[in-house]
Structures are given as C-alpha cells and as structure tokens.
Design a protein around this nucleic acid. Sequence first.
RNA 1: GCCGAGGUGGCGGAAUGGCAGACGCGUAGGUCUCAAAAACCUAUGGGGCCUUAAACCUCGUGAGGGUUCGACUCCCUCCCUCGGCACCA
Length: 811
Amino acid sequence: MVPKYDHKEVEAKWQKKWEEEHLYTSDIESAINPFYDDKAKISSKERFYNLWMFPYPSAEGLHAGHAFASTGSDIYGRFMRMHGKDVFQPIGYDSFGIHSENYAIKIDENPHEVVKRTTKHYEEQMRALGHGYDWTRTVTTSSPDYYRWTQWLFVKMFEAGLAYKKIATVNFCPSCKTVLADEQVMSPQTAGKEPRDANGKVIEDKSTWERLKVCERCGTVVEKKDLSQWFFKITKYADKLLSDLDEIDWSERVVTAQRNWIGKSEGMIINFKKENGEDLPVFTTRPDTLNAVTFIALADEGLYNEGNEEKVGEFTGEYASDPLSGRKLPIWKTNYVAPGYGTGNIMGVPAYDERDMEFAEKYHLDIVEKDPDENLWEKIEKEGWGKRHTNYHLRDWLVSRQRYWGAPIPMIYCEHCASKGTTFKDHVFKGMAGWFPVPEKDLPVLLPDIKDYKPEGTGKGPLANHPDFYKVKCPKCGGEATRETDVMDTFVDSSWYFLAYPNVNTKEWKVGPSASSGQAFFDKKIMEAWLPVDLYFGGAEHSVLHLMYSRFVTMVLHDLGYLDFDEPFPRFFAHGLMIKDGAKMSKSRGNVVNPDEYIDKFGADALRLYLMFMGPMDGYPDFRDSGIEGMERFIKKVWRLFQLPISNSRFSNKEILSKLHQTIQGVTGDIEQFKYNTAIAKIMELVNVLENNKSQISISTLRSLTLLLAPFAPHLSEEIWVEILGQPFSVHQQKWPEYDTKYLIADQKVVAVQINGKLRGTITLDLEVAGSEKEVTKIAKSDPKIAKWLEGKKVIKVVFVPGKLVNFVVN
RNA sequence: GCCGAGGUGGCGGAAUGGCAGACGCGUAGGUCUCAAAAACCUAUGGGGCCUUAAACCUCGUGAGGGUUCGACUCCCUCCCUCGGCACCA
C-alpha cells in the first residue's frame, strides 16, 4: 500500500521549516555585484536580485493571474539559487493610491483599515503559493516610513528644477474626480474597460468606442480642464529614455511600446513670415516638400477635436509668405492640427499629405505637385529660414492628484514671498515665486487620518478642507503660508520601490540604515552591491507607465549622484496574461480564478505546475479545471515512483541515463528562456521512461530528477529529498544537476529515408553506420519498402544528413 | 493608417530548414472491482484501401504564389486575430 501524498500536510510543514531556517533570507551585507571586477574583495556568493512587480493589494486578493506571473519569477529565482547565487527575492505592496482608495470608498471603509486587511490577506496567499520571498524586507508604500522618501524624492526633483507647477490643459476623470497623467488615459480596449460617461453609464454607441479616451482605473471618458498642476520634467530625459532602449535586454514588445510613446520625430522648424512681418514657425518632418506648400494650418484649442470627425477650418484673412519663393499662402485655423505638439502650426502640403489633401479639397485650396527636393534641408538651414529640430510625443509627467490616499506633495506656498518675487533658488525657478519645499528634517508630511476622505471634484483634494493640515509657517520668511493639498500619483510611489528593498529592514521599519540620521537616501555600499535589479519580471501593461517612470526616476537619481547606475532593470521579461474561458479575467465578467480553492484542493505544487504548463510564459494561456487535475495525477505518479522498493543497482540502465541527461540539458535551456511549459513536458517524459524501467533506476538518477523538479514543485521535491532520499535539508540549496555529453549520444540512430523529399520509411542503424553516407545509401536502397519506390527510376542526386536523413532525388 | 507579435488536431500547446502534432487535457475501448471511484493498459488529425489485422496510400500547419532535394519554419501578395501608437505633420 502506497502512502498517500498529503499536499496540505507536506506544504505546511516545509513552508514552516523554510521560514524557521531563513532559507530565503539573503545576506544583504556580503553580496557580490557581478558587474564589478574586484569580486574577490567582498565575500562569498554573487548576488542575484530577482524581482517581480509588486502588486497592489486589491480587495479580492491575489487571483490566478498573479499566481501565474509570480510563480514564473519564483522558478527563475530558485533556478539561480541552485546555480550558487545569493538570491534576493523580496515582495511588497503598492498600497497607496487611487486603486486602493476607490475600493475603500466603494465599501465605505477608511483606506487605512482596508489596506491593513488586504495586505495581510495577500501575504497569506503568497506564502501559501510557496514562493521564496525574503519576508524580512517588505515594503508598503502607504507606510510613513516609506512615503517619507517618496516625498524626499519630490523635494530633490524640485531642487533640481525637474518638478514645477503650471496651468495646463489636462485630463480630468469625472468619476475619480482627479487629474490624470497622459499615460493613464487610453482607449477603452487598452484599459480593458467598457467606456462610461460621467454618470457611470456605459456608452451605448460602440462605433465611437475606439475614438474615446478613458481613465485607466475606472473606464470613464476623461474631460479636458485647464488647471494648475505639478509636473515632473520627464521630457528632459526623452532622448536618453529612447536611446538606452538599445542597451537594455527587454521583451521586444515593451521596447516598441516605449519607442512609440516617446515618439521621436526629426524634422525642422521653418520660419514663415506673415504679411505684418511677424514670424510664423512651423514644424515639419518633410522640409523637402516645401515647394508644394499651398497653405498654413494653425492649431486651435476651441476647434480641436481628438475624435475622428470631419476636418473643419476658418480662414483667418491673413497670408504668410513662403521663405524660399515668396509665394502667398493663406492662413487657416483648423480642427485637425494638434495643439501642444511642435509649434502648433503646420505647412499644408496637399500633394504629399493625405490630411492636407482632404482639407484642401474641402475648402478648394490650391494643390501644387512639385517633386520633393532633398537639398532643401541644407538650403533652408544655410539661408537661416529654419533649423533642424527634434520633437517628441512624450509629455511631462503630471503627478498631482486631487485625492486623499497618496503621499502629500511636500511643498509650501507663501503669498508674502510670492508677492516679493522670492523663489527657492532664483536662478532655477522663474515663475515659481513663493513655492518652497518642506525642509528635509520635517519629512514625512504625514497624511492625517480624516473622515471626509472622499473626493469632491472641486478641483481640490479632500485635504483642502483641513486647515490644521494646510496652515503652516513659511520655511523662508516664517510668515503665514499654505501647504499643497494635492497628493502624488501612485506611480511616484512605485517608481523607486526596488531601491528600497535591500535598504529596508522590516524589524526597524526604516528605509535605509541612515534613514534615522536623515543624511542620505540609501546605503551606498548596499546599493552598489545589489543594484540594478538582475531580472525584473512583470506585465506588459506597464510599458509606458511604471516601467517608463522608474527609468526616468533612476536616471534623475543617478544624475544627482545618488546612484551609480542609470537603468534600474537591465533585463526585463514581460509575461503574458492568463485568460479564463477565452477572455481576460475581470470582476465584471465574473471569470476571476481564485488560487485559494485550488491550493486547498490540489496543493500549491499542482497549481504551480499547471500554471506553468499551460503555455509559454509570455503567452495568453487559458485556465481550465481539467488541466490541473492532470498535474495532480503527475504529482501522484512521481510520488509513487519514489515509494517503490528502489533497486540495488548502482547504475541506471542506458536508456534511462540517456534520457536523464537529455532532460537535464533540455530543462536547463528551457528555464533560461522561460519556456517552463516545455521544461515540465521534458520532466514528464523522463518520469514516463522511469516508470517503464522501474527496476533499473539508480539513486543518483532519482536525486537528479528531484533537483529538476525543485523549482517547479518546491514542496514535493523537499519532501522527497529529505524524507525519502534522506538527503540534507534543503533541496533548494543544492547544486543544479549537470549533464554529461557522453550520455547524450545514443548507440543507435533512426535515419529517415525520403524519396523526392517525401518520407518513405525509416531505418535504425548503429551510430557509426548512420554517419556514413555510403553505408546508409546502400542499406536504404536495399530496404524493400524503399526499393519499391526506386524501381524503374533513376537516382539523380542523394542528399545525406549524417545520422538523420537520406533523400533520394529521382526523375 | 503606422509599428510589433501571431494564425498548427476536439482543447492548451510542441517542433525555427530534415519523421508535423512532443507533453498534457478530453474522448473511446479495455484491465481491476459486486459496483463505482482511483489507478493502469490501448487507441485517438481528416480521408482512403482492407473480411480482419499488419501494412500501405493520400490530403493536411489561415489563403495564394515563390525559393529549396526537402518549408509549420525562409521570401512575396492577401485575409484574419491580438498588442501598441494614432489627424503628432
């Protein structure tokens, strides 16, 4: 009678033991940065910072899509640990911000309380999955010890001239009642939401959906408002953000998305002259078509429409002259030129631009067909009519939010200083008179616990109703002043969290060992030893959000001298999204898969195996209940294999050895490429071979099999390793098995025989024979099946691939 | 419209110039059982040939063309799906 494999008991047992033995707690102080040459000086192991994008703790808890992604990351971490690396694999919570707050509002509970509960639930779920996280170093972005440094970051941005406040036309979500960054406004499809109007009703006319721009969080169609807001000057880094994409090893689709978003256009600003002598600068990427210009089109905020409606315009009554030939060109105000891009003016070239053609035809403007002239670039520049100019689609990052649940923006406005024109640093902040950052010693600016935290949509955040919060003394003159009442975008919180992990120690709950002294942001030695992140694992939906912001913030901190690297994630793998019943998992569809019930019923190992076996890591696999049952069967099969009275034979037979070493080779290569599905398939094949050769398996083979399984099924492997094989704890600290090429060479080869490229038979030959063209040709021709096909035909050519194939070309 | 990734059995998916469908799910039949479950064994792309069986033939990787001794794989044209950008000049 084979003892039953009790997944609940086994998994709980090892999770407890791992924790007690600090199996996944890294030795932060003694790591080696593999990028440095003087490794020997420091200490034992090379570090490997293995990071999965931290989740925001939602109410429903972790769903199977999270488990799919986090397991993919965990497997790689375990694989690297078995390669002798000191793996640092932390986890935390992106718990500050609109996503957590919207839920708190919905259930009418204070966000402080909700976050306490949801983070606890998340931790339980992630522990149940058996991930190898270092639980001694977690971060929670809504903790004052954390957001103190988010605020510090804002202050540094301001001091460096990279944070400024200005009135701009911005996106406003009428449901979330706050402004949003450009990156947080998208098509309904990209947001994965049905578009809604300000009253929360789904827009009925589906034909308009594709033109709508909605809020990333709630799917409400955004409005445009002119408001005074804080921005981070990400555009200053546009060129570096773009060019560094060539240097980093990222999933291609994410690189492409960032390139598109940055949207670099190289062209020229050409100066046209109005009749009254005024300059009329125009941005174009096609100065070579200047000869064919017939009108000038101006952007108009009032007329402009992002939708795809008909082009309309109004003649201004004015004319401009073409700087080269002096031709007279009418100036039109239009609805199709985007304000805020380039100079806001364009030259109308109907012959070479479809949009200009459409407009010209409608208003009966001239259409001139003259061949483009490449020499014009140089000529215009030489004659001083225009100069080369690069334009970017990227806009500055709008970071203020009129909400409660976020890090208060640490800025103070003093009316008195403003009236005198006093600025923080005269040379940098023209136009920012009266604005001063909160002195570093006064950080954090604590978020007060208030009852009326719901947004009102007045253009101000809930903190604006609390004089105790905003009435402060001016840091400059000591007079009456007002604190900023907006809070920061949640993406500011997450733009630097990866820097915090190695510096944080949960027991003391301070970011950075020097946090108490207030001297420095991070411990320099730790940063040098542990960063940048070696492998970042996460979703592609953050292509132009988190992943762009983090790169920007890292570049700034580098330029300010705090970091010695300027790309946070030299390697990023974009995992796919799990699907259920052919659709993305979402609450509204009601197809969210909760991992808890599967862990309970089948165990974490079965769930992990199934999630990884469903398909490639960057794909969109569909979750089915019946699939996980197959994995349960596989685990039982493995378990039974280890319950057999193991033979006394010291060596496995040849078939087994050959299969084992092929498997080691294949699985190793597959894991390196995140092809976990085929890695698992190969382990299954090995198990099948072992089952058919039960009496001939050596202990050494069984040990290797256990090691191969360890990253995928950590509990099962540990149980087998320690309890059945009697090996020392822990399987996760063992060396990954190596393959020996001598076992990869089979004694016999199956050679395919083709006639004119069509398979007509196979012959099994000894290795040496299979490598000889003469022998193989002879044997193949004498094979009756093949001979039949060659009868009466003349062999024109023989194609021979040693050990694989012979192809007879006949007439 | 532009850019990127794809299209393979009933299903998830293997194979990146050399035996298409590994591995798993599902399905059918069988063994065990009083019975069922579990487990195990066998079969499983379509069509044909055949009394049966072994075997064999033929078609087949979105459609059409091309390169090649040989194409799921490379090239061209088209269709469709997914992702990103989008009156960005």
